[in-house]
Every structure is written in structure tokens, then in C-alpha cells.
Simulated assay, not measured.
Amino acid sequence: MSTTAIKPLRKGLQSAAELLVEGKTNAQIARQLWVSTHTVDSHVSSIRIHVHADTGCSRAVLAHTLLTQRLVPPPALPPRWDPSFAPSPAALVLIRAFAEHSSTTDIAQALKITPGALRSRATNLKRAMRADNRAHIVGLGHTLDVFTPAARQPAPAAESVPVAPDPHLGRVPLHTLEGYL
């Protein structure tokens, strides 16, 4: 991503970007905006160019960029939101990893867990946050202000155990997403 000042999005791109941070798929965006999926594909490509994002970056990383640059507002909390929900330190790390890394392998390596453990934790977090996908999790993270400096306090060091199957992933933290599920 570039540090160049970003201009506001055009109206069509703005509408698509707002739905993207809500976790909507291109097909859902197309239905809601009454346009073709081809048009939405073009809008998403134009948004990536507009914010200087790599063409291969994930929708979660793109959502984070849009929200960080304040090009779109954070999404509303989903229906049936649990007002007592507060992300655990492990959940905060996972949300930030989704915002910073595009591939499952990169996220798992950053968290020092296996891709299988990542899928399990992502599913649990998605369920707890009532989110549709990783882009929506990142969007809701912005709604909850988990990217503010106060929320960036380092998590306490976790005890870890070795992972035998994949030496490239290192060690697996014992912290879990229990406590907020």
C-alpha cells in the first residue's frame, strides 16, 4: 500500500466499498446495487487501484485499507449482536492478522498455528461476532475500535507446544478463543 493521500471514492465505488466492508460477496453487492456481477468485479478492481492495493490482496485486507483511510464508515453491528461480546486477546490478534495478511498460510504463519487451527479459530470468531466472512470480521473490528492504539496492547505471552507436522509453522500458542464464545 502507498502512503499517497487517497481521494474520496466515486459514488458507485463508494456504494460497493461500503457493502464490501459489510462482508457482502460480489453477487450480493450486485443484487443490492441492481448491477451485474461484472460491474461489481470492475468496481472492486477500481477500488483496489484507487487505494493502491495489490491485486492479490484479500477482501479483508482491502476492507481494512478502506476503513483505515476512512473512505467508508465501519459497518453496523449485526442483528442479534451480543452486547456483552468483548474480543479476547487471542481474538484481537486474529482480527489484526486478517487485516494484515491475505493468504491462509500467511495468517497461520504469523499466528504460529496450523492452517487447520486457523480455520477452526476463524469459524469460532465468525460465529461469535455474527460475521459473514473475514472481511466482515475486519469491518466489525473497526466498529469495535480494535485497531485503535489503546486496543493494540500486546497480549500476554502464551505458553506454546511444538507442532510436529509442519516445521515451517513453528509453535502453537495454547491460548484459545474460549471465554467469549
Rank of each mutant, 00 (worst) to 15 (best):
T4K: 12
L66V: 06
V163S: 07
L92W: 02
I107S: 01
W81A: 04
V35F: 02
S46W: 00
L92C: 08
I6R: 14
A97R: 08
S88Y: 06
P173Q: 15
S15Q: 08
M1D: 12
S160L: 05
A131C: 10
D41G: 08
V93Q: 11
A99N: 08
A16F: 02
Y180G: 04
K7S: 12
E159R: 15
G116L: 09
T114E: 13
P75F: 11
L111Q: 02
S36W: 14
S58I: 12
T123I: 00
V44D: 03
L77P: 01
H142M: 00
S102M: 03
K11L: 13
D54P: 11
T143D: 06
A97P: 04
K24W: 07
T39H: 10
P75N: 14
R48F: 01
P78T: 01
S46I: 01
I107R: 00
L13I: 03
V51C: 08
T114M: 11
S84P: 00
L169D: 01
S160Q: 15
P74F: 02
P154S: 15
L140R: 10
P173I: 14
D41A: 10
H136Y: 02
T148K: 13
A135T: 00
K24M: 13
V146W: 05
V51P: 05
V40P: 00
G139Q: 07
H136S: 06
